[in-house]
Nucleic acid binder design. Structure first.
Lengths: 97, 97
DNA sequence: CCGACTGTTCGAGGCGATTCGAACAGTTGA
DNA sequence: TCAACTGTTCGAATCGCCTCGAACAGTCGG
């Protein structure tokens, strides 16, 4: 299973906006903003695995987060520098509500 | 028919993100960014009236645009200063793609 | 007054996003 | 080896948004 992340230059604002348009994914983004790196599980502990996996995928494929595998765990963190360079201010607006 | 616009302090990022999450509404925003003020009709000339009206309402109620009635016309413009003060950078990210 | 015009509202239909359980792959530790 | 764990994928059901036509309100010009 390959974790494909879009290149910084390939980030599309439409995809980012779509990914941000859901309470659960917004929660993940804000949680990551306060925690640097977390296991996927830790970001959506009260959601069904299959639903959570769907949201993690959207965040990854839109370029909002990067994921790193370590054993049976998957860790995620915000692609803050990438987002700030492509869409300055967007992430802060989302995090600060 | 009252055109109720949310106050600047009441703008919610969730509503703004939802409003931006549609090609037609993104088109309106980008068209307004290049034209200051336009009649509603001019922003979505090729769409059914009822569908267009739905999108104009979402943009207005989320606080992205303000509308002004003049006779039988309705003009709209971006609430650029309001958006910049609440969510700095967001509008530019959307406009510049 | 009357037809043409801009825009709203309503209900119905369509369609994509979300959700879930079940089955699965891979890892870990006993 | 084997059970427990993290996470993915699949199909099916559900939910909500989008779309449209029809009817409507208000305005304008003749």
């Amino acid at each position: 299973m390959e974790l494909d992340h879009p290149a910084t230059a390939a980030l599309r604002i439409e995809d980012v906006l779509a990914a941000l348009n859901h309470p659960a994914r917004l929660h993940v983004v804000r949680t990551l903003a306060a925690n640097d790196e977390l296991s996927c599980q830790a970001t959506l502990p009260d959601m069904t695995k299959s639903s959570a996996s769907h949201h993690w995928r959207m965040l990854r494929e839109s370029g909002i987060v990067e994921q790193r595998r370590e054993g049976r765990y998957l860790f995620m963190r915000l692609r803050r520098a990438d987002l700030d360079s492509r869409f300055p201010g967007l992430l802060d607006a989302v995090i600060n509500g």
